[in-house]
Design a protein around this nucleic acid. Structure first.
Length: 471
DNA sequence: CTATGGCACGGATT
DNA sequence: AATCCGTGCCATAG
């Protein structure tokens, strides 16, 4: 991706800094891409066979013993082992059972919903539809709803709305099923449609979703039953079916699981940038933090290239020198990237250890600035290092690294727990009181915000959801 | 009158 | 400098 060939020497300190910075913000996937393109365009760069641990087959740092196998048996378990590694399955995609997509065996689910969806449909769209699909996808809110209308899109592309809506329909059937809908109603109808292909759906479900959603969310079952001329109990059953099978916000809370909740389509994995797990998966053992280094082998400046530099005619000299500098710069920067990530994760894992081992309730409120201060780096460095990256936690969930800096996650989970355990629907102020007893002081308004962030209905709408048959 | 959501403000964070 | 987040105030629904 280096474009300008005619510029002055690159190895100025500022250029160096800039490259390190830009590499820092790349995810493992993006770095891989970058290195591959560099490798093919720059003859000074070479990839040599890696040094691997004979025992566990891990890629080892240029020198020193294997970070895992060399651990003494009496390691202190509160000190995480942090290292940079290139696990084999990062490339092969692990056990790949699905042969249906030979060209793209692995659909990386980037954090970015639009690209994720686009990848699913791009193959079946004709070239001129693709930019339109991309445009549509760039107008989604965080719940996956369309923030524009078919009419506007049509006008933008000088097409008829009737040419646009089929594309939207296609998009709606992509993975977070119902994505690109205008509202929850549309999303749920799409989900229902897809569901009906493989499962049986109670009668009137479609009717209710399409016409009585407001009443349904308010639990005015009797009213719906009356209008449809059916029994109220039947409506209740349908309501249960809906709440268990349909998701009004297709794109919300889609993160976290390795595989998708929906069946049928191939499983989609999302490759994390960092793995955190217990050594040998035994919770007694210390944590291992593995920073994915997507480069197979060791990247270095080709010594032959360097040696033959002197023997080249003068006019080629400058060009060669440039390549050489670029190459060594890249190698250095990648090392720095790894190093910075390693330092940051050491700190981060120690501080958020409770979260990692025991779950969201233990999340410490932490800011990027604090970490930056501890490590004596600029806060923007941390920002870049964190942005866009994902971690796989010991419980195999993949989450964005940014949630390590979520100030309200622990409070939100506590609220969720309080509500789950409540005997009788608690109002937001009651919850606020309860939290105060636990030493958490937040405003009533904030409780409401957190509650809705978790998708929990207000008190008066969530009466007695207990499974127990009240007799 | 109570519970809740919308809007907007100010301070913290990035 | 731009963005995010917690909070207070107010309107509205029940």
């Amino acid at each position: 991706m280096l474009q300008t060939h005619y510029q002055q020497p690159i190895a100025t300190p500022s250029a160096h800094l800039a490259t390190t910075m830009s590499l820092l913000s790349l995810t493992a996937d993006e770095l891989l891409e970058k290195v591959e393109s560099e490798l093919s365009s720059n003859p000074a760069l070479e990839l040599v066979e890696e040094r691997r641990c004979p025992n566990c087959k891990r890629l080892l740092p240029p020198s020193g013993p294997c970070p895992i196998c060399s651990q003494p048996t009496d390691y202190q378990s509160d000190q995480p082992i942090v290292f940079v590694s290139a696990p084999e399955d990062f490339y092969t995609g692990g056990s790949l059972e699905d042969e249906d997509r030979p060209d793209e065996p692995y659909v990386p689910m980037t954090l970015d919903l639009p690209t994720y969806v686009l990848k699913q449909v791009s193959a079946e769209l004709c070239p001129e539809e693709r930019p339109i699909a991309a445009y549509i996808l760039s107008h989604l809110d965080e719940d996956g709803f369309l923030t524009t209308t078919p009419l506007e899109i049509a006008r933008y592309y000088h097409k008829l709305p009737s040419q646009i809506t089929p594309i939207i329909e296609r998009l709606k059937h992509c993975d977070p099923i119902g994505v690109c809908s205008a509202d929850p109603r549309e999303a749920m109808l799409t989900q229902l449609e897809v569901l009906a292909e493989t499962h049986s759906v109670p009668k009137y479900t479609r009717e209710i979703v399409s016409r009585y959603l407001p009443q349904l969310s308010q639990r005015h079952y009797a009213e719906i039953a009356h209008n449809l001329g059916i029994a109220s109990s039947q409506v209740e059953q349908i309501a249960e079916f809906i709440s268990e099978n349909l998701n009004p916000f297709p794109a919300r809370a889609q993160w976290g699981d390795i595989h998708k909740p929906t069946n049928g389509n191939p499983e989609v994995y999302h490759r994390p940038d960092i793995l955190i797990y217990f050594l040998n998966d035994n919770p007694e053992n210390p944590l291992v933090v593995e920073i994915i280094h997507p480069i197979r082998g060791t990247l270095r400046v080709n010594p032959l290239f360097k040696a033959s530099l002197k023997q080249v005619e003068d006019e080629k000299q400058t060009e060669w020198k440039e390549d050489l500098e670029k190459a060594s710069l890249l190698v250095k920067c990648i090392q720095q990237r790894s190093n910075a990530l390693r330092l940051m994760l050491e700190k981060l894992v120690m501080l958020q250890k409770d979260y990692i081992v025991s779950g969201e309730k233990e999340m410490q409120p932490l800011t990027r600035a604090e970490i930056a201060k501890e490590l004596n780096v600029h806060e923007s460095t941390i920002s870049r290092a964190v942005s866009g990256k994902t971690v796989q936690l010991p419980n195999k969930r993949i989450v964005p690294l940014a949630i390590f800096f979520d100030r309200s996650l622990s409070q939100r989970t506590i609220i969720k727990e309080i509500i789950e355990a409540e005997k009788h629907p608690m109002s937001d102020s009651e919850i606020q009181e309860r939290l105060k007893k636990q030493g958490i002081h937040i405003a009533r308004r904030t409780v409401a915000k957190y509650r809705s962030m978790e998708g929990i209905l207000p008190a008066h709408l969530r009466q007695n959801n207990h499974r127990t048959v009240t007799g």
